[in-house]
Design a protein around this nucleic acid. Sequence first.
DNA 1: TTTATTATCTAAAGGGTTTCAGTAAAAGCA
DNA 2: TGCTTTTACTGAAACCCTTTAGATAATAAA
Lengths: 337, 337
Amino acid sequence: MKRVTIQDVADKAEVSPTAVSFAFNKPDQLNPDTVTRIRSVAWDLGYVPNPHARALISRRTGVIGVLVPQAIAAIFANPFFDQFLQGVGRVCDKHDMSLLTISPVNSSLDQALGRAPVDGFIIVGVNEDHTEVAPLRKRNVPFVIVDGDATASSSVNVEDASGTYDAAAHLLSRGHRDILILSLPQPEGHPEDAQFGVRARRLGGYTRAFEEYGVQCGGDCIRSTESSIRGGEYAFDEAWNSGARPSAILAMSDVIAIGAMRAAQRRGLNIPNDLEVIGFDDIVLSSLVQPALSTVHQPIIEKGVQAIQLLVRAIDDESVPQHIMLKTSLISRGSTK
Amino acid sequence: MKRVTIQDVADKAEVSPTAVSFAFNKPDQLNPDTVTRIRSVAWDLGYVPNPHARALISRRTGVIGVLVPQAIAAIFANPFFDQFLQGVGRVCDKHDMSLLTISPVNSSLDQALGRAPVDGFIIVGVNEDHTEVAPLRKRNVPFVIVDGDATASSSVNVEDASGTYDAAAHLLSRGHRDILILSLPQPEGHPEDAQFGVRARRLGGYTRAFEEYGVQCGGDCIRSTESSIRGGEYAFDEAWNSGARPSAILAMSDVIAIGAMRAAQRRGLNIPNDLEVIGFDDIVLSSLVQPALSTVHQPIIEKGVQAIQLLVRAIDDESVPQHIMLKTSLISRGSTK
DNA sequence: TTTATTATCTAAAGGGTTTCAGTAAAAGCA
DNA sequence: TGCTTTTACTGAAACCCTTTAGATAATAAA
């Protein structure tokens, strides 16, 4: 059982392969009758152009790659990414493109980027000058950086630092002095990212507020954990078990915050009376939990939309890199007083 | 700015293109020194094999296509699919494959399937004999049907009918006689699917229970709506506005159920005292809402895992089609008494 | 010394499509 | 009638890689 090729159609329709190609792609180059004949033969034979061959020459696949430095399963388990992809998907739908989720977990980032049959990448949470992203520019694959630093390529970011500053200031101004910070995990293996990236920027906002209010925060008050409900639960339990009795929590993501709330509630704490909690992201879930989570809103869907619009533009013409910065804002709900 | 090809590397390393290929793919065919030399030249030049050319000849891309008859944005907005993709992703991660989300919304299903550069498809919610799926078998692309009827190809399904039967029977046995059924939307445009597919099977379970309990249910008690929280809210409001005052709701998906609960609560109804609700799916969200949603559990992640395992097997060898049927079970939570 | 074997490398043949330059015939024009 | 233009179609090259079947030289075996 062999695949039907353009040659098979050409033979049966008694024309050249070129004519078959024209029949589909440039019908005005051919006699209308011939076009119909070729098309009908193609249909009978069940011919569909080989996407690889087509991509090889036309240099277009209609596929956008989204690369996140996490396992694929973890990506879809993360409400933030589900919403981000929703934004990306919206524009994909409009342009009739598909969306490839790529993970560099097993193979190296480099390999993952090289093997992917895509027209361009959206790279989330990795900086432009990352050792394995840089080679991308050597080839001719356009990409957009999201939640990471970039100058030579386009990027989309949100005001992480001012968002977290607002959150911390909100708690500090109302007298909280014993605040537990639940942080995103340290980007491992790439020390160059440690002082940049989302984690560092958000941390910067917290610490600036702490400094302004003259509040000391040794390493003790910061705990890094996986960005998931489980991660939040775990981190709170760990802190509690080692004697921490915070009056408030600042979490770098909503899922962490929700996990921490759960763990706290399980220990009989009342939120917000015994413990106030502020997250970051404003995922859909945050307004559905009990109590609803106060959080730093970032326009997640918009982030996705902007990223892919930038990318589509970069694919079409070779436009200048743009850097988009989206606003964040503190939203008060039930988890704060 | 041209892309670096295998020829460029060959020239610079003063070997044949074949040698370059061997250096990466079959290093034992070459002198170890040569391998290192070629690799280092390749690295300097920033060479990465063209994925399209590679796919064209090796007939492998390392990409799995997931096709759902919805817009991509809608897929990611649907917690069921997020969880399903999580299952699929788990196995993708293990095999170092990527996951392509394809939507037939603009182009035809046929076109979407034809253009996708994948090794195989997971097709959700469309039957094998669908007019535009059938051609797939003419080509040599393996696929697995999920939530749809199939005989010649592998499939993964859950016991939809017995699940919904249990749910309906649970309510009927406890005296409910005025039950509103909130259904998934009719698959449009393809009348052949109307009497099969998930919707029909789940409906079959409900109606069998209704018949057994001798309860009449005209078309009035069934409302079809989009599977989303909004869809559920809308459907409940519509029913209410046209005079319906059900004592219980059976929803074909959790998001619909959650939407209906919200709309009911907004009208001052107490759940479960004034209105009992049972959903279908058991998404993560269902145990987090207030009250927690009673529902028919289906193993969503497992569904994804099974589907891709079947597909991987079909890609590797040409194994016989298998049909997997997973169990469902009724879970009682706060939305029923 | 001759033959068989191994190590190392290469030429050439695809893989399926599109594009470019061109040909032959038909049509238009004077 | 002779010339140019248009129409309808084709051949060959290009896209870039992998693979198979050898070629060559060096080594081992007879």
